[in-house]
Write a protein that binds this DNA or RNA. Sequence first.
DNA 1: GTATTTTGTCCGGTGGATATACAATATGGG
DNA 2: CCCATATTGTATATCCACCGGACAAAATAC
Lengths: 408, 408
Amino acid sequence: MRKINTCDFRVATRSTSREINSLIALNVIHEHQPISRADIARRMKVTRGVASTLVNELIGQGLIYEGATGDAARGRKPTFLHVRTRDRLVVSIDVRFSRSYIMLSDFAGRQIALEIFDTIFDIGDFIKDLSDRIRRLVKVHNAESRCEGIGLVVPGMVDYRTGRILNAPTLGWRGVDVRDKLAASTGLPVYVENAAKACALSQMWLSNNNPASPQSFACINVSDGVGVGLVVNGELLRGRDHIAGEFGHMPLNPNGPRCMCGNNGCWEAYISNLAILSRYFGANLSKRSPKCLKEAKRSSFTVLDLVARARSGDSKALAAVLATGQFLGLGIATIINLVNPDCIYLAGEITTAWDLIEDTVREAIAERALTESATRTPLRVTSTQEYPRLRGAAALIAAPTFAAPRVA
Amino acid sequence: MRKINTCDFRVATRSTSREINSLIALNVIHEHQPISRADIARRMKVTRGVASTLVNELIGQGLIYEGATGDAARGRKPTFLHVRTRDRLVVSIDVRFSRSYIMLSDFAGRQIALEIFDTIFDIGDFIKDLSDRIRRLVKVHNAESRCEGIGLVVPGMVDYRTGRILNAPTLGWRGVDVRDKLAASTGLPVYVENAAKACALSQMWLSNNNPASPQSFACINVSDGVGVGLVVNGELLRGRDHIAGEFGHMPLNPNGPRCMCGNNGCWEAYISNLAILSRYFGANLSKRSPKCLKEAKRSSFTVLDLVARARSGDSKALAAVLATGQFLGLGIATIINLVNPDCIYLAGEITTAWDLIEDTVREAIAERALTESATRTPLRVTSTQEYPRLRGAAALIAAPTFAAPRVA
DNA sequence: GTATTTTGTCCGGTGGATATACAATATGGG
DNA sequence: CCCATATTGTATATCCACCGGACAAAATAC
């Protein structure tokens, strides 16, 4: 039961039905490919005639293509249809404090090339270096004509509409325009987004054949900071000031550890990578600040190393990991009670220890969740190898192709 | 950019455009009445011909009616159109620990009759007493033929689809079916919802001529408990397990006061009516439990009394009110950072002291909100005289009339 | 070789937006 | 009183897109 926005609506014209059905068809193909015209007609509960017209229109637009002939028990064989993703490319960039990642992939998020390099914190130098890398990458892979855009994600708050980074504390970037600069120096359309929000987009649009993909979910991204991408009814929640999803700054304890945001006891201050490490090292890193971050970077001891130690019998390391699991669970339980998503996706280095912490996390959730049914909210771990943030950056360019038309 | 749910979509048929435009027209009339056919055409950017057909169809359905002839500087006078709300009635019920309220109103939420009575906690007796009251009320006001349903709200978690109350701690109701029992004994359709969620529905559907009504907002309801109704993109968020919006149980401090949910330091334990009173009375009421609630009820000293004392110079009362304001602000800031709504509505007894606490609340928000722009999130207080919860109950019946059709 | 089944196309029918003309209604000026 | 002008609301032909059903093409079963 949705309310129509009487200040900004779209009246249905005589071509609206076609727009809607065309996009339903595209999404049906996307989620069930390979699929025949007849199957589309059955799934959409329209006649094969309509399905055929829709399909031919989509072929004409270059959004899908006819593939091999399929197999049927009897009768004429179907011709399979596929969404055209393999020859549509995108450059995705994940800027993080420790390092930055640049990937060339197709519209399905399949990796073609990947480069990892040290982040340059001066924004001018960064853009210059980055656009050199992009040009080289695109050239080497002969992708000049096929690359349709650049998606860039950062750990911080981003004004998606203007492409400005509002505040990325770990990078020290505040109020910097990235989109226009990068677009100018590469000649490609650029979209910038918060990393966790982008992860949510990739879960929505690039997840591989997930038949029961939820319409409302949360993507929790634990790295230098903690961000959450919130999808409600199939739409990413950005918020009035582009800060929706900043669950990292839930206040859990007024006497808790100091957070980079200036307050005490934020969730982030308990479970960010730096928090995990400082839990292991004792007081050494407990004063969170960019300086401490740099110190941690120099020592180059990461959460992955900590998890390795925990596995190899370092009881102090294990304790640090488990304690983190407890706070992770507390935060997840809170998210469940507040927005009650259909499903929660987890990403970040700490998830490599999922087998170690799962029980602790679930116990913590069970302790806080308000109903028994809520404790059973599905939790899914996104593997670090899948580069969820990079796939999210790719989704920034690829998703609009599949998005529903705005109606009413 | 919304994703189509490929498991559960609606294909556009040749009558879909009409359904969409018909409902846009209805909503335009609802929000700008009185309005002429020509004005609708201008607002919808369609020809007067189309607007005329839509209007005549809506008149045929009995949803709108032609009123007086308007005035124009020159040319033919317009005939004004109105949404038919005055002769469509609804019984709304607000069950609370202290007392229960029953109201007969029209579809616009205009009060026709109001009764206040002591809540009966035995569910069987309650339903019996309530249906007697409803029958009497409907009969006295000659509303048998015009009453289209019953909306009932409770402070607690409700499965809206089945009409079962999952858990209403203050009432001691757990897993009780209310809808079917009440529907059986009154013969009217019944909808049951959480009070804060219903408040959100009334803000969406029953707010009086609010031209710039936001599409995403939060309704915070502070009374015996603390509930929040969250509206995202014009749709109420209910959640996988019907517990979305339970911001009352945000954990703010592991060493905080005990909450009725069994945990410590929930937001509710700082700002609920009982928490406010116990802040004033010292340790007397600090052990939250239904027993304490009953004690408080017997003493019949309410938050309204406390606010009165604060106004009349009782410095201890004022301190209690201000301390509450601080925690209220902390929670609001958290809501802003997590879901970043366009606007926040506040309801509950404590809002009668808004002039006293506003500065404190805004300071607390400014301290925590992550961006300067977020601190300026509009806050609007809903007066207790408007009976927001009762209007919410009415919205449960009235809203579906105006809801957007499900498309795609 | 024929019946059957399935795929994909084609075509007249119908609902609904669009454009435009037009009647009805009111004002102002001579 | 007549006429130009402006505004509201209706009527009509046109175009777009779904609907239903017929039909050719392709493959299997018997």
